[in-house]
Structure formats: structure tokens, C-alpha cells
Amino acid sequence: MWALENIIIYGLCMGAIYLLIAMGFSIICGVLRIFHLGYAYIFPLTIYVTWAFMQEVGFSFGWALAAMVIVQFALGAAIYRGLIRPYFEKEEILFTGLLLIALIVEKISNYFYPPQAGVYIPSTIMEGTTQIGHVYMPAQFVAGGIIALVLTGLFILFFLKTRIGMGIRALSQGIYESKIVGINIEGLYYFTMLLVLVPVIIGTLIIAPVWAVDPQMGWLYMNTAILVSVIGGLGNLRGTIIASFLVGFVHAAMCFVIGEPRLMGAAGMALAVVILVVKPTGLTRSETLW
């Protein structure tokens, strides 16, 4: 009973956090139809740009966050304009370029703020520990889980109910068809590049007070994003939601049933293999956003 209780609570909380981490990656896969190997840059950029504005410019945390979001949006737009758009059809250049961006952000972060620099973002929403039954959890994680679910709901509503959202979904189903019906493809691509930053930034800020913050952090989280997106079906938001919680439950089971947290990663991979063997496109049909 104790194990089951833990699996449910931890599975839900970890799944919700994984969802925040993976949602952006999945949307990019679905809309732009590229495997965004540079996705890892968003995580350290969130932390270190915020920190730089606080430390070097003297901004308050709120202003530093606002400035960081502007920098993220500017860089996201620049990446689209300077790399994705011109090399959209040349995958080898595109992938290498995106990967290099992530590496450059990591190296620059490490140059100015190596791990021992003591970077700590005060993005705690809820202090202390929450007890649910016999399970203890940082209140921050619980708050993060709730935010993840609310944000996901808003994203779904956006894609289902708004004109822009429907445009993006149309784009995810077919570029040429979208052009024919007069959708502003270029504008929506830009918009999507910026939209995907939102869940990642929020996820990073939620995780930061309770998990590792270092210049290499992006790779760890990108691995999770890739795993979840592949299991869910690349580029499908519905599949990403299911996969996030599935991975969360598998990870929790590894900890509380097998009792071996070192196998969490391996178990996630094994799950991906099993699902891809049974259903090669992932849990839901790929290449459609919803």
C-alpha cells in the first residue's frame, strides 16, 4: 500500500514536470517537423540570463525574469530566422547548427558561472514540504504539478479554440494545404518558436529550487523531453501528455517497487523500446499536433 501510494503521488508529480519539460519539444516536432537538437539551450539560458540580470545589472527577480523572457524570445526568433528557415531542407546543417547553439550556450554559461559560482534562482512558489497520505513531497513540486496541468489545459484550449491555435494545428497536418487556405505560415512558425519557450521556461523555474542547476543541465532535461516525445508519438501533444505520466509512473515504480533509482533511465528507455516495437509511431499518430 505504501509503495502504491508513493507510485501514484510521485508518478503524477514527476509526470507533470516531465510534461512541462517535453511539451515544447513535442510542439516543435509537430509544427516545424524538425528534431530540435538545440532544445537543451533553453534550460541553462533561463537560469543564467536571469541570474546575470540579477547579479550584473542589479535587477530584481521579477525584472530579471522579464528581461530573460525577452532574451529568450529574441534568441528563439533569431534561431528561426538565421538557422531553421534558411536550412530547413538541409537537415545535416540544421541539426549541427542547433546542436552547436546548445553547446555554445552551455560553454558561455560555464565560463561566466561555473557550478561553484553559486547560481541560485529564487523561483520558489511554495516553501516547505507537503504530506499527502504517507507521501512527503516538496510543496514546490506539488505546485509545479498543478501549474503544469493548468498550463497544459490552456495550451489545449488554445489549440482547439483559437484561430491561431487552429492555424498551427493545420500547419502541423500539412504545409501546402495550409498555404492553399491562406494561412500565414511564416508568421505561425515564428509564433510557434516563441510559444514553445513558455512551458520550458516555467518548467525550468519550477525545477530550479529543487534540482540540479549547472551549465550542463539542458542535456539531462532534453533527454527526458526526447524520451517522452518519442513514446508519445513525435509531435503529438495528446501523446506527450500520456507519455509524460507513463514515464513518471515507470520511474516511480523503479524507485518504490524495484527500489533502484539508478534504473529509472534504463526503465524509461525500455518502455520506449517496447512501445515503439508494438506501435512504431508512438502512442498516438505522429506528425499531428492534436
Binding site: 507521501v135 512527503y136 513540486f141 539531462l220 520511474h251 524507485c255 518504490f256 533509482p261 539508478r262 529509472m264
Partner: peptide, 20 residues
Amino acid sequence: TKAVKPRGTMYLPILQQIAR
């Protein structure tokens, strides 16, 4: 007693078990 990965470990479940 438990061996853990040097980096990237989710410690919360381990801490839960230690408390238990």
C-alpha cells in the same frame, strides 16, 4: 544503503525510503 548516480539523481524517493 544505496548506490546512486553521481549526477541527475532524483533523490526524493530515496529520501522517502530512508525516512521510512
